[in-house]
Design a protein around this nucleic acid. Structure first.
Lengths: 110, 110
DNA sequence: GACGCTTCCCTCGACAACCGAGGGGAAGGG
DNA sequence: CCCTTCCCCTCGGTTGTCGAGGGAAGCGTC
């Protein structure tokens, strides 16, 4: 077992959500599962962080939502990227990579 | 110009400070300059974040401090890594790398 | 058809950490 | 003597996560 999952850092949840939705519309619960799975069980998205984040992103116009039925026949709210969301995803991904590179330059210096 | 510097993410400041001090004792102001320089001007450490962080780390026993005189003949508080701090640096660096790897797995998936 | 498990939604309070703006003192140069 | 630079610090506001709470509804089992 990989033991504990890592805590999320502020700011990364948004981009993880946006990325998840770039593969197609999903409901919140599925976003959480997808992130966990794709990260190799290292990242755990708490529901108490997830739903506020989704509402935030929707309010900003980066997501659109509508009610529907999940694969398990349950009432679920499906989120879909808007074009603004797609643009935001690109920008945030780039910013993340710049950030990682910058921190790495410090941490990996002799 | 590289334009704006990136905002720090919660949690990274500590490890950046510890790493800076792993090269030898420094006063706070010098830590800020060092991080900025080593990161290629991408990271800017605000004083309003820096000094609380130093106090935090000192209180946790990861740093030791004493007053002295800077190269410019000014009163300055020099910080030095304790062995606990050194251990913490190793652990935090590893956690950071795990985190980056996990997020990257999500963001770089097809 | 009662029970429990799972799926899916949500909210709220506590807490941590960064930002921005503030203030101050002391050295050194013009 | 003033102004800039260096170096210290604090405080309020904001943001975002965690942890724990609660609830409804479908499904399987007995």
């Amino acid at each position: 077992m990989a033991g504990n999952s890592l805590e999320l850092m502020q700011g990364t949840l948004d981009v993880l959500i946006l990325k998840s939705l770039s593969w197609g519309p999903l409901h919140g619960y599925a976003v959480a599962e997808l992130v966990k799975e794709r990260s190799g069980e290292e990242l755990k998205v708490e529901e108490g962080a997830l739903y506020p984040a989704l509402h935030r992103l929707e309010k900003r116009g980066l997501l659109e939502a509508e009610w529907g039925l999940s694969e398990n026949n349950r009432r679920a709210r499906f989120y879909r990227l808007t074009s603004a969301g797609r643009a935001h995803l690109r920008a945030e991904t780039q910013a993340w990579q710049r950030y990682v590179a910058a921190v790495s330059r410090v941490l990996e210096a002799a």
